[in-house]
Simulated scan of single mutants.
Amino acid sequence: MMKSYHFSCPKCNNNHSFYRYGKDPDGYQKYLCRNCHHQFAPERPRAEGANCRRNYPSCPVCGKASFLHHDYEHYSNYRCCDKRCNHSFFAWKSTAISSPSLSQLFGKHDFKRMRYPVQLIITALSMFYLGKNSFRNISLILRTAFNVKVSHTTISNWCTNFAPLFDDMRIRLMPLLDLNSDEWHADETVVKIAGVKHYIWFVVDSETRFVIGFHLSPHRDSPQAVSVLHEAQKHGKPAAIVSDRYSAYKVPVKSLFDGVKHIRVESFKDDISNNLIECFNKQFKAWYKTKQGFSSYASANNLISMFVFFFNFIRPHSALDGMTPAQVAGLKLSKKQKREFLLVA
């Protein structure tokens, strides 16, 4: 007669064929299933939440469950449980993704209590961000051309403190753009803040020349690349991301843009190069050189965010037939709306 037990194997549900298999470290009787050879201790109290399924992401290819393959400091490597799929993918830990520097702007959100008219302020900002004028030169031009006396210190405050206002405009305009293009280009460049090297990470769309995101950081590693790519991810998805051979882009691109081809440019002789964003870096450095460095991280972050806004929405590009990157990306506004969004003086 086959012996029956009051428990069953948790793996194959066998309830009649077991071996006694010693005891576990806490003294509970262990059994070995004769069908699947699974070892278990049925009398051992179950820990709270032990039966809950682990919160691992599903496989992005087949949608089935995954298991943790490797766990690193900033990210985890998962693999699909289906052996036929066997897809390996990465997921960044939430604690490793810091907010981009764009979220740390300070200053004014409106033009209230300003002594000078809005048109004059927009004109001064345009001369600073679209050209290579210093604050003193802008003050001289305003005094000569408009007969308005404005100190260079006041103009400096305008160029720094209105960053949150223009960022609010950017947030309202971004949903109107289509940035799902063939390629995004990613790169970083060096600036000096109070004599210390910092790195600016940029992501630029190849078709529209639109700067999708930037991040200012004192470090040059993968978590910083994740910050800028995670912010850019909110605005679209390209078919490919082009970067240089720097290893910091490798895992962030795989984890945030699964299924997107990552093209790592090896030399200038390649068919696909990173010249587009290098050209943008050249324009940025030409503007940055006249500033002779930045005095603080906060002011540098504000100034760079304003430069990016003017580059995207106000500055016409000869390579785009005299249109702005935002217009090429599908932005269509009436004259009244342009004045509302401060795109014209």
Results as ranks from 00 to 15, higher is better:
331 L>M: 07
343 L>A: 11
61 V>T: 06
343 L>T: 05
164 P>Q: 15
78 Y>A: 04
114 M>N: 12
170 R>P: 14
291 K>T: 15
224 Q>Y: 01
154 T>F: 02
131 G>A: 08
157 N>M: 11
222 S>H: 03
174 M>N: 09
203 V>C: 02
106 F>Y: 13
216 L>V: 13
189 T>Q: 15
92 W>F: 14
96 A>S: 15
319 A>F: 05
9 C>P: 00
241 I>N: 10
236 G>E: 00
139 S>G: 05
261 K>A: 12
306 M>E: 04
61 V>N: 15
234 K>Y: 06
218 P>Y: 09
306 M>L: 08
155 I>T: 00
322 G>F: 01
10 P>Q: 08
91 A>F: 08
53 R>F: 11
226 V>T: 11
339 R>K: 09
316 P>S: 04
91 A>C: 15
271 D>M: 06
51 N>S: 09
340 E>C: 05
115 R>L: 05
112 K>D: 09
299 S>G: 06
106 F>R: 11
288 Y>V: 11
329 A>L: 06
140 L>W: 07
107 G>Y: 00
195 G>N: 13
279 C>K: 15
316 P>N: 03
314 I>P: 00
275 N>L: 11
85 C>A: 04
35 N>Q: 05
270 D>R: 05
18 F>H: 05
71 D>H: 10
243 S>G: 07
121 I>M: 01
340 E>L: 11
200 I>C: 02
166 F>K: 03
89 F>L: 11
108 K>W: 08
186 A>W: 14
7 F>K: 09
186 A>T: 15
8 S>I: 13
296 S>Q: 02
120 L>R: 06
22 G>V: 14
177 L>Y: 01
9 C>D: 00
304 I>C: 00
133 N>R: 14
218 P>D: 08
79 R>K: 14
280 F>V: 02
148 V>L: 01
282 K>F: 10
56 Y>C: 12
102 L>P: 08
3 K>N: 13
160 T>N: 13
239 A>H: 11
72 Y>M: 08
328 V>H: 00
174 M>K: 05
86 N>I: 14
300 A>P: 01
257 F>H: 09
114 M>A: 11
121 I>V: 12
58 S>L: 09
70 H>V: 06
103 S>W: 11
130 L>I: 10
164 P>N: 14
13 N>Q: 10
72 Y>Q: 04
318 S>P: 04
87 H>N: 09
137 N>E: 15
339 R>V: 07
289 K>G: 02
324 T>R: 06
73 E>R: 15
328 V>C: 05
190 V>R: 12
61 V>E: 15
138 I>P: 03
35 N>V: 07
262 H>D: 02
116 Y>C: 00
94 S>A: 12
148 V>F: 09
163 A>G: 03
296 S>A: 11
203 V>P: 00
32 L>C: 03
154 T>P: 06
36 C>H: 08
241 I>D: 08
294 F>E: 09
264 R>I: 02
176 L>C: 15
286 A>S: 11
253 V>R: 12
30 K>S: 12
59 C>N: 09
89 F>I: 07
